[in-house]
Simulated assay, not measured.
Amino acid sequence: MGNVLQIDAELKNIVVRNEIDNSPFKIGDSLLKIENKSIDSFQDFISIVSILNNNESVNVLVKRDNSIFTLKCSKEILEKIRFNNLISGFATLTYINPVTNKFGAVGHPINIGNTKKIPIKSGYISCTNNLSIKKSSKGCVGCVSADKKFVIGDFHSNTNFGIKGNVSNLDLCSYKKYKVASLDEVKLGKAQIILQDTDNKCKKYNIEVVGIEKQRRPASKGIKIKIVDKELLRQTGGIVQGMSGTPIIQDDKIIGAISHALENNPAMGYAVHIKWMVEENS
């Protein structure tokens, strides 16, 4: 818990990653078919585009949000736009079930542009070392970067509250076990987060729970928190990208995971109740 992970995944679809003039595509659009030919890999995309006529209008079936529709464009547009089906980034390990070896991380869905909960074909999580931190400041959320060590698990599930999968290459003997708190056990006041530090050790830092949403059904931002630990504030300036999924401990129970930072005050942020994160799609 609290380990900074490198997350690598192949997506189920080719996705638009930039926007250009005179293009009908939006960042996050998923390409399903070109001229009624299915796109199941990046190689499919390259092969189909290569045989298109330069001066003809091209029909492209796309998925945007939850809608599927056809767009028309030129071969030139398809050659200029950046498409890919790979993602890579950093987030934090929230929990591992010691009985099932199932893990949860991130605390929010992986989205690209307009595409929410981007479908994953196959994904992997790796442990890291040599952390480097770009501090957050008012109006600018910082970020974590690190060196990838080795793969410790895989995942296919991208849920409203993060990714879920299985750990297969990690010794859990040295990890402390925590009970999962119910919603009514979360209270205002002192708490701690567990996060990997620059010495590659998972360490506790002081925070305060300053707000609690009384949620009757699964939803994000159920807990509002404030980072008060002077050492962590000196290192990070508050919450940074890559801390999503950081577990929160109160009264020796895990109560939630960091999911969002407040850009105008990065010492403040939101967390998802651990109950929602553990139970979703379980």
Rank of each mutant, 00 (worst) to 15 (best):
Y178F: 15
K138L: 03
K201T: 11
H156D: 08
D147P: 01
D154F: 07
D171H: 12
S157R: 04
A181E: 02
H156G: 14
L195Y: 11
N206H: 07
G189W: 05
S168Y: 02
I152C: 00
D197R: 03
K148I: 01
C173L: 12
K164Y: 00
F161P: 09
D154V: 04
K177Y: 07
R216T: 09
V144L: 14
Y175H: 09
N166A: 06
I163Q: 04
S145N: 06
V167P: 00
E185T: 03
D171S: 10
T159R: 03
G189F: 08
E213F: 11
K187D: 13
K204A: 12
N166W: 00
V209I: 15
A146N: 02
V209W: 05
T159A: 01
K190H: 12
V210A: 07
V180M: 05
E213H: 10
N169A: 03
A181K: 12
H156W: 04
Q196Y: 00
Q192G: 09
I152N: 02
K187A: 12
K179E: 15
A191N: 03
G211S: 15
K176A: 06
A191G: 03
E208S: 08
I193Q: 07
K149E: 10
Q196D: 04
I163R: 04
I194Q: 10
S182G: 13
T159D: 02
A181P: 15
D154M: 05
V210P: 08
K204W: 06
N158F: 04
G189E: 11
I207T: 08
I194T: 05
K179L: 15
G162D: 01
N160F: 02
K201H: 11
L183G: 04
N206E: 12
K201P: 03
V144K: 11
D197F: 04
T198W: 00
Y178W: 07
K201I: 13
C173Q: 14
K138P: 06
L188D: 10
L195W: 06
E185C: 07
G139H: 05
D199L: 07
D147Q: 10
F150A: 07
I212W: 10
S182D: 14
S168C: 10
E208Y: 07
D199S: 12
C202N: 15
C173G: 10
S157N: 12
Q215R: 09
N200A: 14
K177P: 02
L195V: 05
D197M: 10
I207H: 13
S174N: 13
Q192D: 15
S168L: 08
H156T: 15
I194R: 03
K204V: 03
Q215L: 11
Y205P: 15
L195I: 04
G165L: 01
T159L: 06
A181M: 13
S182W: 02
V167K: 02
I212F: 12
S136T: 03
Q215N: 13
